[in-house]
Amino acid sequence: MAHDPDLFEFLCRMGDNTLVLGHRVSEWCGFAPVLEEDIALANIALDLIGQTRMWLGLADEVEGAGRSADDLAMLRDVWDFRNVLLVEQPNGDFGQTMMRQFLFDAWHLRMLEALTTSTNTRIAEIAAKAVKEVSYHVERSSGTVIGLGDGTVESHSRMQAALDLLWPYVGELFSTDKVDVAMTQAGIAPDPASLRAGFDAYVGGVLAEAMLTIPDGDFAHKGGKTGFRHSEHLGHMLTQMQWLQRAYPGSSW
């Protein structure tokens, strides 16, 4: 496969989103409020890490530099990650984790649906596989956001606080740069902005049912997917995620 820097960049964005969120969600393993939620979160983390292996595996083939999916995940430093800022935000309480998941899932499902018709058949195949798993993620995170938003006074106030905190990270999911333009022109991926209307309609419906209010203003934190500037949280997360390969380079089992 010929090396295409824009395609490599795009694949890293897809793979880093699922990798970083998958790791974040896995931080709940053994700590969730009830057993069923613990199991569900672990399952979702597993799906996301599995998808990461497909995205970064393809990125390795495109780059052709001999960096495997594992190398890309475990040996790059923070400035080389291309995930959106939303997924690297800390878990906070369970409600904040589920709000982050919901906002990501609602974008992720639409992105994957669009990628199933990619002109790049490898990408279309990965998307067709992942979209089945992500349909379950959306169903669950939507139901949890409604249950907690329209729950007790305490759960409602926590969900509103989570939405207020995380909403400014939504805009980056739909921002367009030269990589996106190249992908759109090649028919490989949709223009991210084109997914916004469907996202707003779905998310607006769920949040209304959850009795939650979307904050005013369209300010958006940016810099994750371009790698320009990650938030302080990603580096801290990587010290945990990459610890073993950093301390014992090349170890395997």
């Binding site: 199991i39 399952n43 799906d47």
Partner: peptide, 13 residues
Amino acid sequence: RISQFGSTPCKAH
């Protein structure tokens, strides 16, 4: 239904 997710990825509870 208790949960869409069960003891393995392919099962619900």
